[in-house]
């Protein structure tokens, strides 16, 4: 009996091969990183200097607004486009699969290729501008790359793909008979959407929206490649990398990262506070 218990206890040693590396490589750095934000390079002792610096130097605190100014409008637009497209094609429709596939396609390309593609398409001599010029709509090409607009477009394309990829499955879980029931009871399409479809999918949509928003707050390569990382698209991660790789100031770099994490947390709690105020639960009751 004792033998057996002992053997069972020893089994839990099998957890160690994965736990030890994680403690060393993840938990310890995470804690150390947190402590680092209260330290200065080369000096001992704890101080709030990094945070003071962050919130008093516009070079740092501007990143909050710059990131949010870029990412929040982009993710709202992404949500509208992705929802609009997936809602429209949700019932079996000819070509629906192709439309969904193409909408999600940028995800497989990945951020870097999408960034380059946005440049190729929207640059002053790219198809977008030349078409508009040839149609006589504009005389001078728009400057849509290496600035806010470029990063914005690239974000919208990637974010739409991400949200759409999640929505397609979610919309599939809502029984089309619910909508049919509402319609036969006299509801117009809009009322059916407002009173049946939306309340049922709302909590899931908000979750995906929050996930996407959080991901985009950590935007980096897009801000660097199609944006203007020196000013307009100087996001959290751009600054963090600058501190870490150019100034080798890991303390400041991590301070930026922590502020970013807190921002993400705030955004998340706002979205979830909104989410809590509606129906959260299964879209099917059939027994």
């Amino acid at each position: 009996m004792n033998q057996e218990v002992f053997a069972k206890k020893r089994d839990y040693l099998l957890l160690l091969p994965s736990l030890i590396p994680l403690l060393l490589l993840f938990v310890y750095p995470l804690l150390k990183g947190f402590v680092m934000t209260f330290q200065q390079p080369e000096t001992a002792g704890l101080t709030l200097a990094n945070y003071v610096e962050f919130f008093t130097n516009s070079n740092y605190y501007d990143t909050i607004w710059r990131t949010l100014y870029l990412v929040v409008p982009a993710s709202i637009i992404e949500l509208f486009i992705a929802f609009g497209i997936t809602y429209f094609i949700r019932e079996k429709m000819r070509g629906g699969g192709i439309i969904a596939g193409l909408t999600i396609f940028p995800l497989t390309l990945g951020s870097i290729i999408v960034d380059m593609a946005v440049i190729a398409f929207f640059k002053p001599t790219g198809w977008f501008n030349t078409t508009l010029i040839n149609m006589g709509l504009i005389d001078e090409p728009f400057t849509l790359v290496y600035n806010y607009a470029g990063a914005f477009i690239a974000l919208v394309i990637l974010g739409t793909a991400f949200i759409a990829s999640n929505l397609v499955g979610m919309m599939g879980t809502i029984d089309p008979n619910l909508e049919r029931a509402a319609r036969t009871l006299g509801a117009s399409r809009w009322v059916t959407f407002k009173r049946v479809f939306w309340p049922l999918i709302r909590s899931n949509v908000l979750t995906v929206f929050a996930l996407n928003l959080i991901m985009q707050i950590g935007v980096y390569s897009t801000a660097v490649i199609v944006g203007n990382p020196a000013s307009e698209t100087r996001t959290f991660v751009v600054v963090a990398f600058e501190e870490a790789m150019r100034n080798f100031n890991y303390n400041m770099a991590n301070t930026v990262a922590i502020v970013m994490g807190i921002t993400q947390l705030l955004v998340l709690s706002i979205v979830f506070a909104i989410r809590k105020r509606g129906y959260i639960g299964s879209a099917s009751t059939f027994k």
Binding site: L178, A181, A182, L200, G281, F286
Partner: peptide, 29 residues
Amino acid sequence: DMSRRDIGMVFQNYALFPHMTVAQNIAFG
């Protein structure tokens, strides 16, 4: 349009609105 046909339908899987109470479901129409 189906919303204008004035038909009462009982679906095979009932298709009751899960986010509404019994009374709200019945009152929908």
